[in-house]
Design a protein around this nucleic acid. Structure first.
Lengths: 233, 233
DNA sequence: TAGATGTAAATTGTTGACAGTCTTTGGGCG
DNA sequence: CGCCCAAAGACTGTCAACAATTTACATCTA
């Protein structure tokens, strides 16, 4: 898996695979919702064979499969979000380390331009977190990509980012976080520019730890909001 | 272990899935060997449907799928082994960190007993690396398990250990490595016993780095030894 | 009325068959 | 003698149908 063009192996299964990812991560299907194979196949206009294959490939990542019951959109338990960030911290930390060693000057310049662009963007103070999200994603993905490890990149995409996107749909980011994140991004960039693997990894991990604290807090807040068993207020 | 009994949902696809993993990681199928769906299905006595689903779930992990060609056992390129160890270092390092914080005293004692048992085992000097392998695996798995993160455990199993097992089939460990590994295991145990997350992670990562050096060297050696052409007659 | 029970609809797991594409083998030609 | 081309064979991708199991509902009983 090198530099060859990943031609669209437009098999019907691949197409519906991508489409299901988009549908689930965009919130079209609610977490925990059961997906009927027959109905889905009918809606997509295909047979159950390719759909079944696509669902099998999504198993454990975005859907859960119970033997004689069926598939349902993945549902997060308490603590799952934290675990997700542990994996992210480990992998992206390693990616930052590798990037500090192997990143090209061109890539470093592009990253610097990106951050300058992000700083000029309005709405860092409070709202507009939607854009901030994609900005944050761009920054992180650029580093992961520059690390040059196809394996780490694919692992993060398949096992972390998709699920993270679902989480973000249900809990909004804290207002002050965007500004802090941008500062931390600058610190990471400086470490990369100085070609210091230890520092780059340490700062990336600290950054993701902070993101974890923020995300867990936000999740707990929305969790109380969504499941108000006790009549407070 | 977990609370509820995880009743084995013996679907045919699951069964053949496990069986394929065993067959590939045990060397029954050579890396790069093309697997004919029809022939495999006939040999296994099942239809192509479940087999296809199992193969799809193995895609990217143990087999590669080319759109109109078929599936073949995964084949490692130059540098793949190194990348595998990068992922392992990141994830097991995090696991050691979590284990240092969350491991129970009972688990620590069990780990100590295991190491004492390993030291008493003969054949650490040169041969008997087969047993050493499983010993090494036991130690690492015990820590990963004690970390309490199901996600990290599953990721290591699915994405790292299986492929690592294939690699070990083709290149033998260096003779002196077993002894050094045992010493490093002891260092890791001490860090865990002192409940020092930073130290535990650092030592685990150093240990895996050393294993990477050894493995890459051994792989390069056997690569020269084997035919440079990847032709399977 | 509440609970248990048996039947029917719906859904998943599995199978065999069909169409399109790639590989291979054999023959013809330069 | 080597190269190119064509037809046959084999294989993957896809589909519709069958069997076994689960779920829901209606009925019966205490």
């Amino acid at each position: 898996m090198g530099a060859m063009t990943p031609i669209h192996g437009t098999s019907l299964a691949n197409e519906v695979f991508d489409r299901l990812i988009e549908a689930i991560t965009s919130g079209e299907f609610q977490p925990g919702e059961r997906l009927s194979e027959a109905k889905l196949a009918r809606e997509l206009g295909i047979s159950r064979g390719p759909l079944r294959e696509a669902l099998g490939r999504l198993e454990g990542k975005l859907v859960t499969r119970t033997p004689r019951i069926g598939v349902s959109v993945i549902q997060f338990e308490r603590g799952d979000l934290e675990q997700l960030f542990f994996v992210r911290e480990a992998l992206e930390g390693m990616a930052a380390r590798l990037a500090a060693e192997r990143m090209s000057e061109t890539q470093l310049d592009a990253l610097e331009d990106m951050l300058r662009d992000h700083a000029d963007r309005p709405g860092l103070a409070a709202g507009e977190v939607y854009h901030q999200r994609s900005m944050d994603d761009d920054f992180h993905f650029a580093i992961v990509d520059a690390a040059g490890s196809e394996r780490i990149k694919q692992l993060l995409l398949d096992e972390v980012y998709y699920q993270l996107r679902i989480h973000r749909l249900r809990s909004s980011t804290r207002p002050g976080r965007a500004r802090a994140a941008l500062d931390e991004h600058h610190d990471i960039l400086k470490a990369l520019q100085s070609r210091d693997p230890d520092l780059a990894e340490a700062r990336m991990r600290a950054h993701i730890r902070n993101a974890r604290f923020s995300a867990v807090a936000a999740s707990a807040a929305t969790e109380d909001e969504h499941a108000p068993r006790r009549r407070s207020a």
